[in-house]
Design a protein around this nucleic acid. Structure first.
Lengths: 254, 254
DNA sequence: CGCCCCGCCGTACACTGTGCGAAACAGTGA
DNA sequence: TCACTGTTTCGCACAGTGTACGGCGGGGCG
């Protein structure tokens, strides 16, 4: 009773000199720190390396402490994803009147978006868990900028929206397929070329009944896979841009 | 002692007449059954309703029994996904020489693929976990058929491949965005229109700094959201097909 | 009959996200 | 100085997860 308040020899009683003495030594935890560390963890070891406990350990914090800054894991992931989109360069609308200019701007935007997804392949596993990604501020900023480009290029509002959806849809779809490949590649821990060499025989065997795919895999993919993917993507976007431009010209013509 | 072997009144002692009497009554468990039941579970309650234990319970089996038929959960998911692609109609190549015909065929293929994804929105959360989906037999059959259509339409091999990638990429990307929306909608348990009405004010508030998006959400989306998505998708595919056709015409012209 | 093999399953392990209540702390007013 | 308040931190616990392992029991074969 008196022992407790006065000398405190009872083990576990906090005394001034051995007290942890951290007077909230840092802000200690902030949403930005958490997001940043989660990002690092994801980039380092993929999606299954991110658990609330591991993340908290990295931050020298208790697992459940995170929940004062982040509602739940889903929200955390949404924040991380939107932060990625925040690193992409925003296209500027000015000077987009000429076809070559806006095409280049849209192309660059698509390429950087694809690069972001393939550089962080774990994103593919995240967009499924997280609804509402496309309502994040950075994502919206990106969309707004791209719409602005299309509008100053001379598109009507709904045309611009359609065009953007086409490009963005293609970009996300392609990049997701690529990223799911890259993610399973990262898990295997092997070089892309080497992993390809190991996998190719199986694929060729599997495509035995499909002559066109067989030809595709035996001839096309054989060398420099990465550059091949880059070129393929660029051509795909160009095809879409052709379609978009044709649409606008048709409207002007009539 | 004697009671045990002779009259067996002790509870739990197996006696011939109440013995389970299954002489391996069925194959009892098969890969197809497992996949089918997993599919049902996923369709009923989404991705987080599928655990090996729950699935096994549905099949009156022990949890770990599944592993004799399926390597792990990832493989199971891959099987389920490929089975979905197996239900899609295969386009036939014959008669695809005329532009209207092959465009219609490709369009139908894209639409059915999108329909499959949006009807089973949990797929979005799966394509991330599972690499190698696009090496499943049914998926490959689909690709082969689409390539055949493009080739008889007069495209060169690499052109056909490019065209298919463009359409498929756009389809997957768009459908995934839609499905992620639909999945979070399914979790909310509300009607799409109602959920939209509840969400729209927030979105409009959030887009305050982005005039074009603001306009988009205040005017465009207000009514009949589902039909709107359908039309938007169709127009997107048409834009891409325009681009593809232009590419071919350009080659013929030179 | 005995043997082996293989499908089945109970148990166990390591790990997950997160609710709850207690603690530690900063700030305020008396 | 003290009590009180609101916020942040965290240990514990719970209900689950995927799946490795070892045993069990029955069918097929010698």
């Amino acid at each position: 009773m008196a022992a407790k308040s006065e000398n405190g020899t009872t083990p576990g009683i906090p005394m001034p000199w051995n007290r942890p003495q951290r007077k909230r030594e840092q802000p200690s935890l902030s949403r930005d720190q958490i997001v940043a560390e989660a990002f690092a963890l994801l980039d380092a070891n993929g999606i299954e390396a991110l658990s609330m406990r591991k993340l908290a350990a990295r931050l020298n914090a208790g697992a459940t402490s995170l929940y004062t800054h982040v509602a739940n894991k889903e929200e955390l992931l949404a924040l991380v994803v939107d932060q990625i989109f925040g690193t992409l360069p925003l296209p500027e609308a000015e000077g987009s009147e000429e076809p070559k200019v806006w095409r280049a701007k849209v192309m660059e935007c698509a390429e950087s978006m694809r690069a972001a997804i393939t550089r962080h392949p774990w994103m593919v596993g995240v967009i499924g868990d997280v609804g509402m990604i496309y309502l994040g501020p950075n994502w919206m900023r990106l969309c707004e900028a791209q719409l602005a480009v299309m509008e100053t290029a001379g598109f009507e509002f709904s045309e611009a929206n359609e065009a953007m959806n086409a490009v963005v849809g293609y970009t996300i779809g392609t990049a997701c397929v690529e990223a799911s490949w890259l993610a399973s590649l990262a898990r295997s821990g092997q070089d892309e070329q080497e992993w390809m060499n190991r996998l190719l025989p199986t694929v060729i065997e599997a495509t035995k009944d499909f002559p066109r795919l067989h030809r595709l895999y035996t001839t096309e993919v054989s060398s420099e896979v990465e550059a091949g993917r880059d070129n393929s993507f660029t051509r795909g976007v160009n095809v879409i841009l052709d379609g978009i431009e044709a649409t606008m010209n048709a409207r002007r013509g009539r």
